[in-house]
Amino acid sequence: MFRQIVKDYALIDPIASSQLLPAGDSASPKELIFHILKDNAADVEVLDIGFGRGALGELIKGTPQTAHWSVDGVDGFEGACNHPALFERKIYRNIWHGLAQGVPSDRFARYDIICLLDVIEHLTADTARWLLRTLLTSMGDNSFLFISTPLWFYPQHSQQSGDLEEHLIGVPATSMMALLPVMYAMNPPLIGGFVLTKRSLDFIEFFQPTADRSFSYQRGMLIANAVNFQCVPGKFFKLL
């Protein structure tokens, strides 16, 4: 199922009354989004996949330099798409209820920045590889993919029926650095945020998540240090 809930800031197809509420919040270094573009004053289109409680949208719209940006959201959890308080604040221009895998691929080319913050670890390894390849293939030539994920198997389980919160994979730092990000940052506990461009598609075969639940924080740190991933919270690193 993939249907539009909000169009041009107006609720058009409300979900039936539900007791489910968005509870999780991404631990990613969201502020990295302000450093991606050369000119934040330009008209910018952002797609927030797995927007949850809307923290990224609120950050963008609550910052004077980016308040004019247009932010669209996609989420597969019913509770996230039944959030009148968020919709009334007109944070998200358009919202669709559905999984990222259900987004028509031609839609991705419309956006300057596609955000996949703390989402990919909720997918199977095969689906994660497919989605990353699809996003990089379908996005515009001058667009950016902002992706964040724990760089270890961060144990997390579902809290509500259908909330999609369970973690299914861990992503080693080698997988993300091998995609040649143009910049990155880190938040504790070893949550990496990476900005990718179309050139990452040439290295997609090196994106190798694992379903091994013994891939601990300590093992993740060892790998991060081995590939010179800078584990400095609050600092942004530009590679090109």
Rank of each mutant, 00 (worst) to 15 (best):
I91R: 03
D112C: 02
G102A: 13
G79C: 12
T124A: 03
V74I: 15
I60Y: 04
I95K: 04
T127A: 14
K61L: 07
V119I: 13
A80W: 05
T124N: 11
T127R: 11
L132I: 13
L132D: 03
F146C: 08
S138Y: 06
P150S: 05
K90S: 12
L151M: 15
V71C: 12
S105L: 11
R110S: 13
R93D: 03
L99D: 01
H122C: 07
L116D: 03
F77G: 05
I120E: 00
G140T: 03
D75K: 07
L99T: 06
N94Q: 07
L59Q: 10
G140E: 03
G98D: 07
R129A: 11
P84W: 13
R93W: 03
L86M: 14
G102W: 01
D118W: 01
L145R: 04
R110N: 14
G102K: 06
S105N: 05
D141P: 09
G73N: 09
P84R: 11
L145Y: 05
K90A: 13
T149V: 15
A109T: 09
F144Q: 08
S105V: 11
D112E: 11
L123K: 03
G79M: 12
H83I: 03
P104I: 07
D72N: 14
L131Q: 13
T127V: 15
T66N: 09
I114S: 00
F108I: 04
P84M: 12
V119C: 02
F153M: 05
D118N: 13
D141Q: 14
G79K: 11
S148K: 01
L136T: 09
L59T: 08
H122G: 06
P150Q: 10
I120V: 15
P64A: 14
C81D: 10
V74Y: 05
S148R: 02
N82I: 00
S138V: 09
E121N: 06
M139V: 11
L123P: 01
A80R: 05
W130N: 10
A128W: 06
I120K: 01
G76N: 10
L59C: 05
N82W: 08
W152P: 06
H68E: 10
R107H: 05
F153R: 06
E78G: 03
W96E: 07
A80S: 15
